[in-house]
């Protein structure tokens, strides 16, 4: 944390090396969050670059006393993902996506140590998450993947605490039901 604060201060002072170090420290994290929310590698990469650029350019807006740098970055990423989803819904109609061909959730091969069944289950989980309502998916990813507290989730999603709690609860129940159905 103190490393991050020092890097932020260096970048605010104009040291571009510090910006690069900040970028490299959070690159994968931001990408994975965008990927979990969008379910598409290309979109996730574009949104992640956009979110990181915004964060680095607007570093003076970051207030360490309000939230950790990661939480701030997650807020920006969630907001950018919402914009991307909204634009996609409004502007384009993709036949490949409608047919379910646009998603590349199964792209990366499982590690050599991972069993085929386990890899299949993990993929099924990610698939089932893509079927959830975007707000419910956001809450679930922020809870289970990023490990945020309910209060942090409410801050990131800009909603009241009970709403954040009920979204996580709903997401868990829906995911549980979907996975049970799939196994049956």
């Amino acid at each position: 944390m103190s490393d991050t604060v020092a890097l932020i201060q260096d970048w605010q002072a104009g040291n571009e090396g510090a910006a690069e170090a900040l970028y490299n420290a959070h690159r994968s994290d931001v990408y994975r969050l965008a990927y979990a929310l969008l379910g598409n590698a290309e979109d996730a990469e574009e949104v992640a670059q956009d979110a990181l650029t915004y964060a680095l350019v607007n570093i003076r807006h970051y207030a360490p006393e309000r939230a950790s740098f990661a939480t701030w970055l997650h807020t920006i990423t969630v907001s950018r993902c919402r914009d991307r989803q909204r634009r996609k819904r409004l502007v384009s109609f993709s036949l490949t996506e409608w047919l379910g061909l646009g998603r590349d959730l199964s792209d990366p091969a499982p590690g050599p140590e991972a069993s085929a069944i386990e890899a299949e289950r993990r993929e099924a989980l990610l698939q089932a998450m893509q079927e959830l309502h975007p707000a419910v998916r956001e809450a679930l990813v922020l809870r289970y993947w990023a490990g945020h507290t309910f209060r942090e989730i409410a801050e990131i999603m800009d909603c009241p605490l009970p709403t954040a709690q009920s979204r996580v609860r709903l997401g868990y129940q829906q995911l549980r039901a979907a996975l049970r159905e799939e196994r049956a």
Partner: peptide, 11 residues
């Protein structure tokens, strides 16, 4: 599962 699945995804 979610953490493992996302850990396998890299930019």
């Amino acid at each position: 599962q979610l953490q493992a699945e996302l850990a396998a995804r890299s930019p």
